[in-house]
Design a binder for these strands. Structure first.
Lengths: 198, 198
DNA sequence: TAAATTGACATACGCTCCGTATGTTTTTAT
DNA sequence: ATAAAAACATACGGAGCGTATGTCAATTTA
């Protein structure tokens, strides 16, 4: 039984560090988050951190990987409960906007992540979100709902539009009203992708 | 004549610092750019920097203000030489994508800027680019080319799409091919904004 | 024009923080 | 049972930011 204790303990400390990092990065931002404070709050020291993640950027990567997985799950959920594929695609976009409204996701995934690790498309995970959107669009192209075009290109632009919408909403005085405007504009934009009726 | 010498010298040192900062921020990134090295290359010390810009973020703001002005000028130029307003709008978007391909703009305006200063919509300048796009869209709405909708919302989503397109292109192995795909997708998206023919 | 004051910039200091190098203890392997 | 290795803590050095203080030129005032 001691054979498993080892790996389990390691997994626990990694989880503790990631959780503490999520909190610190989200509230203070990556640059202002102190590794000493961070590890202390997890009941550890910087030694554990450097042993497990190499450096500060490594820790950020781990945090991003965790959040990314959660985002994909939520996008799938939104898509699955839509009636048609097209509506599922729209729901996916709206779900993305909603997620990007959360301060934690905004700060870590949208602001600090790209600044520290470079463009998300180069990340190890390849931002699973983007893959999900690309796959959805490809399916819509195959079934003739969307014009024949590069699915990844469409996914990237759509994601970018949704992303900026979120940043806008988050900074607004009246998020609710702005959210409505953004979703309306988003639907119009998406319509541009559709195949002209034959 | 000595009355003007003073202000002129100040303006020169500010210009020197901003130029050195543009170079350093663009090549090393904001976080990795050392104020000591930066000012030394301008033939000055950190004293001048803190006196003129308050702190490191202040210097970044000044740099962003300068670049922003240049971007607006280029977008206007692209729009002015188009035949119709609608084509001018598309040209504006393409121009934005092209500009965002430049490493300096990408690093400073798109990555470090938002991460350090927060969302661009909260910047003092209010990113003049966005204003330009909003105004263009509003004109198109007024003349009936574009559906009645919130012009700023449309501008933000369009800008976001163009932005992500640029980041994608910049990270690609074959930028030229990807650029073509991105522009195609961009045009389709934009069509979604157009008024249905009556 | 001479003295005083303000402004522009340089120098010096302390503080925080990151990364690494070196221990120390517990587990795994032989 | 002893050697090796892993997990984590402790200790050290270096870099960088911001501030406080100093200095010199330029502008103002008398």
């Amino acid at each position: 039984m001691a054979a498993k204790r080892r790996a389990q303990m390691v997994e626990e400390t990694r989880a503790k560090l990631i959780q503490a990092a999520r909190k610190a990065f989200a509230t203070k931002g990556y640059a202002a988050a102190s590794m000493d404070d961070l590890t202390a709050e997890a009941g550890l020291t910087r030694g554990a951190l450097y042993h497990n993640f190499g450096d500060k950027k490594g820790l950020l990567q781990a945090v991003i990987g965790q959040i990314d997985a959660e985002m994909v799950a939520r996008m799938r959920a939104a898509q699955d409960q839509a009636e048609t594929r097209w509506l599922g695609f729209l729901a996916e976009g709206v779900a993305y906007i909603e997620m990007a409204l959360e301060p934690e996701i905004q700060r870590i995934m949208l602001l600090d992540g790209p600044a520290v690790l470079g463009d998300p498309s180069l990340w190890p995970n390849q931002t699973a979100c983007l893959r999900a959107t690309t796959q959805t669009i490809q399916t819509l192209i195959d079934e003739g709902t969307v014009r024949p075009m590069d699915a990844e290109a469409a996914a990237r632009l759509i994601n970018g539009a949704a992303l900026n919408a979120s940043l806008w909403i988050a900074a607004a005085d009246d998020p609710h009203a702005v959210f409505a405007k953004a979703v309306e504009a988003f639907r119009y934009l998406a319509v541009g992708l559709r195949q002209a009726e034959s």
